[in-house]
């Protein structure tokens, strides 16, 4: 109940902060992108538009998750709006979870709209859309669940700018964790090898959530993999939010 109140308020704040303009940006990118493909007239343009749309959801969603997420708790402390909130009979974990869920609801809405908009556009262009397109979109959302959790964690620890830089690094490296276990020969026997390999297991692997090329090219993906990835995302996010709550629990505001 109190969590929902905080969540609803966070959602409302983001909407009134005009975060939803990102949808226009997305539409612009997809439409201009598809036109560009038409001009250069390389074949298979429907595939490319699907690919572009899913990549766009991932990138624009991540922008919201990182920029809104890393300032989520920090801004409340900085602007002192948190004073009268903490003075309510509200547990601090309720505040953190409420903020997180509010932003997630917004991101879910944004991904849903992007997914619908692009699907309709693709159908208009004569392409075909099946349920895997929406499953791929949902996995983008699951990835953002994790990015948002990480951003919220940093919003309890550091300034938004520093937090955004760190989460952005996580995001970039998290898409390329494969290189860490696929190290070139020179690393053989050096101390850095186990460290880097260790990182592979510790860093969240964002690439796991991308089933974009499979879906675009009609390569089958198993439901058990989808289920596994959803559980992976939920557990990892829960862990980050748990850390965020620990950090916030005894913080002076």
């Amino acid at each position: 109940m109190r969590i929902l109140a905080v969540a609803q308020n966070t959602f409302r704040e983001s909407v009134r902060d005009k975060v939803l303009y990102v949808l226009l940006l997305f539409a612009g990118v997809v439409i201009i992108g598809s036109k560009a493909i038409g001009w250069i007239s390389i074949g298979q343009d429907i595939k490319i538009i699907k690919d572009l749309s899913l990549a766009g959801m991932s990138i624009f969603g991540a922008l919201i998750a990182i920029f809104v997420g890393t300032s989520l708790v920090y801004k409340e402390i900085d602007k002192k709006t948190i004073y009268t909130i903490i003075a309510q009979p509200l547990h601090r974990y309720e505040f953190v979870i409420g903020k997180y869920l509010g932003l997630l609801a917004l991101i879910f809405g944004v991904i849903l709209l992007m997914s619908m908009m692009s699907a309709i556009y693709i159908v208009i262009l004569g392409g075909e859309i099946n349920h895997w397109y929406f499953i791929a979109s949902f996995l983008v959302f699951m990835k953002l669940l994790l990015v948002t959790a990480l951003s919220v964690l940093f919003s309890t620890l550091s300034s938004p700018i520093l937090g955004a830089i760190i989460v952005f690094c996580f995001y970039v490296f998290g898409h390329a964790t494969g290189v860490l276990i696929d190290l070139p020969r020179q690393f053989e026997g050096s101390w850095s090898k186990p460290v880097l390999e260790g990182l592979y297991y510790v860093l969240p692997n964002f690439a796991n959530f991308d089933i974009r090329s499979e879906v675009v090219n009609g390569v089958p993906v198993s439901y058990s993999y989808v289920t596994y990835i959803i559980i992976y995302g939920v557990l990892y996010s829960t862990f980050f939010i748990y850390l965020a709550i620990l950090m916030f629990q005894r913080k002076d505001v």
């Binding site: 308020n9 704040e13 902060d17 602007k79 002192k80 004073y83 009268t84 003075a87």
Partner: peptide
């Protein structure tokens, strides 16, 4: 509780 300077959610 009334804080020293009241701060609000300006968008509400």
């Amino acid at each position: 509780y009334l804080p020293e300077q009241p701060y609000f959610y300006e968008y509400l």
